[in-house]
Design a protein around this nucleic acid. Sequence first.
DNA 1: AATCGCGCCTGACGGC
DNA 2: TGCCGTCAGGCGCGAT
Length: 271
Amino acid sequence: MPELPEVETTLRGIEPYLQSQTITDIIIRDNRLRWPVPESFKMEAKNQVIKSVKRRGKYILIETPDGTIILHLGMSGNLRILPENSTVKKHDHIDIILSSKHCLRFHDPRRFGACLWTKGDPLDHKLLINLGPEPWDDEFNAHNLHKQSRQRRIAIKNFIMDSKIVVGVGNIYASEALFLSGINPNNAAGKISLKRYEALVTAIQVILDQAIKQGGTTLRDFTNSSGEPGYFKQELSVYGREGEPCNKCNEPVRKKVIGQRSSFYCVKCQS
DNA sequence: AATCGCGCCTGACGGC
DNA sequence: TGCCGTCAGGCGCGAT
């Protein structure tokens, strides 16, 4: 399931193939993604030259002079670089054909992903304009988290998964970062001390950095742009390890649903 | 304003 | 073997 490290891994894989290429054609086999792929997309993006490829949160932005393609991988999406006319498999919904005769292929079994076209500054798009800071931005710091969380009773796990607070922290890395910083995921965000927020900010950055270095986490279906899995799964401390011993203290890892999402933690190491 | 919970969707898996 | 229920989960959105 693509979170920030998986999106970043994808971005790094596709960027060299996209830079300065002309989009010679677009094939939409199924427009039923999270939002219907807009009718205008094919005509507007065709013949555009790709200026840059960026990431904002979990969104991938392919910028051209006349507009930007906004991609989101949802739960099960991936992007691959393939020779054009490669064999089409089930759930290969969109091909963006490049002048190099490669194609960028969007594959997404669950269709929670998105492919949109926007003119003007993509950061002003409705989906992006309210996003919080990137995890490595100066603005993402303990002082701000502490200030933003006062009087809030929301569980800390849900708080750090809120994209208005910080982008890119999904279910897996939220559990991992809270373990690393020794914070119980159920704690009310508003009761957490400045000092603990300092540890949490660092933990989020460390976990995401490590996951990017490992090419992301593949639980089931994530692959990078070459079709290979990520290797961070073997470094997960708590996620998906219910009943297995905590690797710090041997206490069995617990699983609890918080905000309709499975959360994993150690009762001894996290308080 | 903050919080909660729904719904979108397919595939894997377990039980019978 | 096959059918069916459950779970997985990003995240916008409507309801409270």
